[in-house]
Amino acid sequence: MAYEFRVLETGFHRAAFNMGLDEALLRSVAEGRSLPTLRFYGWAPPAVSIGYFQGLHEEVDTAACKAAGIDVVRRITGGGAVFHHHEVTYSIVLPLGHPLARANILDSYRLLLGGIIEGLAAMDIHAEFAPINDIVAGGKKISGNAQTRKLGCILQHGTVILDVDVDQMFTVLRVSQEKAKGRLIEDIKSRVTSVKQCLPQSAPMSFEILYATTIQSLREGFAKALHLVFVNSGPTESELQLAGQLGKEKFSSQTWLASR
C-alpha cells in the first residue's frame, strides 16, 4: 500500500512566515483542500523557536537575538527552544484518520521519525529514535522534533542538524541553572552532532550542497519508511496568503510571542 503525499520545498523564509505556513498547511489538509503534506524548508535570517509552553525570557536572550538579527518565534507545538541555522527543517501534516496516524504522541513520533532515520541511513548515517522526541547518531542528538494535533490532523515538525556551533547557539539561548549544573555548554557540545560531523571526512560539501543532498535523502527516507508516493507541488495561493496573514498577525505579535 502506498500513500499519496504532496511534497513541498519552500526555501528559506523568516521565522514568522515559516510557522505561518506550517499552520496554513495544517488548516488546508484539515479542510480537505490539500493532500497530506511533507514540507522541507530553511530559515533566513537564522531564528530561535520556542515551544508552546516555554517562557520566552527564560529560554531566549531576546536582546542578543535582536542585536544579531536573529528572529524569535513561538511554535504551536510543545518541546524545547531551537536555534535554527544550519539545518534542514521539515514538517509533515496528515489527518488523524490517515493509516499513518497513531493514537498517541510517542507512537506517532516513533513511526513518523522513521522517515528521518531512513533518510540519514541513505547518507550512511546510522541513527535511532531517542524518546520522547529526538533522533541520535552515535549517541548524540542530530534531530529534534515537535508535534501537535489540531483540527483533526497531526502536525509534526523538526530539524535535521547539518552543522552546529554550540557557542553561537548559547549566545541566544539561556541555560537554566538546573540544566547548567550537570550539563555545561561543553557537555552539550559532546551531546550534539550534525550531518557534517557524521559524514566521511573525505566528503566536504558546501552548505548549499549539504542542504540539497540532505533534503533528497530525507525524501527518499520518508518514501521508504512510510511508503509514500510524492506529488511535487508548491503551496497553493490560498496557503501562501494565509501563511502571510498568520505570520503577520499571529506569529509576529508580542501577545503570542510573550504569552508565557
Binding site: G51, F53, Q54, G55, E58, G80, I105, Q147, T148, R149
Partner: peptide, 15 residues
C-alpha cells in the same frame, strides 16, 4: 499558577 517547560500536552489550549 503558571507551568512552563519543554513538555508536550495536546490539545495545548486545554492545558
Amino acid at each position: 499558577l503558571s507551568i512552563r517547560g519543554d513538555f508536550f500536552a495536546v490539545p495545548e489550549e486545554a492545558f
